[in-house]
Design a protein around this nucleic acid. Sequence first.
DNA 1: GACACACAACCGTCTGGACGGTATGTTCGA
DNA 2: TCGAACATACCGTCCAGACGGTTGTGTGTC
Lengths: 193, 193
Amino acid sequence: MTSVLQRDAERTRRALLEAAATALRAHGPTVSLDAVAREAGVSKGGLLHHFASKDALLTGLADEWMTRFDAAVQNHLDPSDERPGRVCRAHIRAAFDDTLVGDDQLWSDPAVLAALLAVPEVLRRARESGERWRSELTADGLHADRVLIISRVLDGMWLTELLDGRSATAERASLRDILLSLTDHTGAMSPTA
Amino acid sequence: MTSVLQRDAERTRRALLEAAATALRAHGPTVSLDAVAREAGVSKGGLLHHFASKDALLTGLADEWMTRFDAAVQNHLDPSDERPGRVCRAHIRAAFDDTLVGDDQLWSDPAVLAALLAVPEVLRRARESGERWRSELTADGLHADRVLIISRVLDGMWLTELLDGRSATAERASLRDILLSLTDHTGAMSPTA
DNA sequence: GACACACAACCGTCTGGACGGTATGTTCGA
DNA sequence: TCGAACATACCGTCCAGACGGTTGTGTGTC
């Protein structure tokens, strides 16, 4: 029975993750567990009950985000689209999804990235996730060159917006259309005049 | 007169920067000033004489690298190349320069990046540098779309190799050729079969 | 060329505070 | 009543930066 509990472990866990992200943005990548716990309205002991260590907390944060992005790609799959590159297109649309990558969103903050990069386990899982996507996208019917270019552009865009803040909307839309149009043919890349 | 001094401030300064990078790779982004100083064969007091704070040290490190990359692009400028996009091509060649971005090189390490991202001043200068390159490349005679794509691919490639380690040489070469060929025409992007 | 002086380069130590993690209680829900 | 979900207190460690001192180096002076 999922009643409205005063004590709801799952709710607390989520609150802690959200608080971690918020506190990271506010206090930089060296935030103390105290600060995160306070932000979540929990004691440090309570935090450490859910996440055995600081690294575990940050790993949990990274997991949460990767899971959320994976789900977003699923949501952006177009059922009526049966041409090659459909997963790739969903991937592109997800990467441009404003509700996922907005400025206000907790993802895009250098301090958060800095903290996560410092945790080996996070790096491991990020590599794993990248490898999964890599194989899924190359099995999508497009030429490898196109997948490669598109993936790198998406990565680069994320990095750029992480540093500079969200770029101009017009530029974003233009970039999105270019990438999507790159999935319209299955041949090798070749420039045209 | 630049005699062979026992005390050579400039040499010490460079040693400290190099030591900072080495120590970061070895001990992670939370390296102590003590560790860096020891690595450089200098006392902590000596370190703080050259860099007033830890942030100043990291900022110095970032500056060093950006300067070095700028110089590399200059070196890769082809004097016989007078077509539009020559700066862009030099930029691409520099980004693929093995002597600059090798695994063994100090750039490509997550721990180092993590430390640098945590320093606001570093972010400021990185943004500045990005803005400079942006304007320089758009004044290079290519269509804005092409510059945009190429820039993002280079960023994404750097990020990917930072996480995964250097990718396959064949893939790198292929990517390089694609990017260079993208500078062969000045028109808008459009995919071909 | 000897001497003194000024100043940069560098050393070693100290400290105050922060922070991760533990150990131990306490309360709540099933 | 038992265990999960918290709270509280505390410990050991680590570290940035301050500080006062010391050594070397060019420079002016006679």
